[in-house]
């Protein structure tokens, strides 16, 4: 049975496209994450103050204000109406993510993403069970709870915990014991819940997901007819439920991954040996014939697996 001949995830893609081709978006993503972090570190490390502040609020080239809209929203629930600078900053950030893609923040900017990706790698190496998998609505309930607690306590509640700002601010301004929050997230993802933090808990991701519901950037399973059921895309996808509707859709169904949970990380594009996926936009109407129903894997695919 072909089921017993498991090649490591992505092996076929490496053979077909070369290592760089099979890790293109992963590398680009790491570069983006490093760039965004590096811009903030230029000041404190090298005295080049292009960007001041951190991810919750910053000032670039002394003119461009940027503010985390979720933090500002909590502040408004806590009954503080912010000054215009912060409002403009939040509108810019919110607008950009609403247009480009909400959870692009999660996979291309957020400094916790490499941590949880690393945790998933360890989780896989250890052969851990997937563990506790809360419902997909959990993060929205947490999001609501955070806003309620902000209103009830008159504080920006999530910032008491938020491992993103704990890490990001910590790297820039001094971390104290805040690294423990990062460690907790790592341990949680390795031992308690596969893809647990970013996939089920984090209300920041939930917020950006809601923000980007109508965003332009989408992954499309445009070449889904070529899918050979190797399942590698499901194995690398941090939100694997988003793939099925597009990949397994009938000819009449859109091949676009429209779920707000998709982080546009592009790993499915990397890891697919037959190039089923590509980056596209939500108004892409290119026809994509559905996958031909088959009961067992193609012999061609079986041969390549055996190779």
């Amino acid at each position: 049975m072909s089921g017993t001949v498991h090649l490591p995830v992505g092996q076929e893609a490496i053979e077909a496209k070369g290592w760089m081709g099979a890790h293109k978006y992963l590398i680009l993503r790491r570069l983006a994450q490093l760039t965004f972090l590096g811009l903030f570190l230029l000041g404190p490390w090298f005295g080049i103050w292009w960007v001041k502040g951190n991810l919750t609020g910053s000032l670039t080239f002394e003119t461009l204000p940027l503010t985390d809209p979720f933090v500002l929203l909590q502040g408004m629930f806590a009954q503080h109406w912010p000054e215009m600078t912060a409002l403009i900053g939040a509108l810019i950030v919110g607008g950009v993510y609403a247009i480009i893609g909400g959870r692009v923040y999660c996979s291309w900017v957020c400094p916790i993403n490499p941590i949880t990706d690393g945790a998933h790698w360890v989780h896989d190496k250890l052969g851990m069970q997937k563990g506790w998998q809360p419902k997909r609505t959990t993060r929205y309930w947490i999001l609501g709870t955070v806003l309620l607690v902000s209103a009830a306590t008159g504080t920006i509640a999530w910032e008491v915990i938020n491992p993103i700002s704990m890490l990001h601010r910590g790297l820039i301004f001094g971390i104290g014991s805040a690294w423990t929050f990062v460690l907790v997230v790592f341990v949680f993802d390795v031992f308690v819940s596969r893809r647990g933090w970013c996939g089920h808990i984090c209300p920041v991701g939930a917020f950006y997901g809601l923000l980007g519901q109508k965003a332009l950037l989408r992954v499309s399973a445009v070449n889904r007819a070529a899918c050979d059921d190797c399942m590698d895309c499901f194995a690398v996808c941090p939100e694997m439920h988003v793939i099925s509707p597009a990949l397994r859709g009938k000819t009449a169904d859109t091949p676009l991954i429209l779920s707000p949970d998709c982080t546009n990380c592009g790993r499915c594009i990397d890891v697919c040996a037959v190039d089923v996926f590509k980056f596209s936009h939500r108004f892409d109407t290119a026809s994509a014939p559905g996958r031909v129903a088959r009961s067992k894997p193609l012999s061609k695919s079986g041969a390549s697996r055996a190779a």
Partner: peptide, 13 residues
């Protein structure tokens, strides 16, 4: 604590 977003811009300036 409802108003401060902990960005550190005051520290920088």
């Amino acid at each position: 604590l409802a108003a401060c977003i902990r960005c550190g811009l005051c520290v920088r300036d």
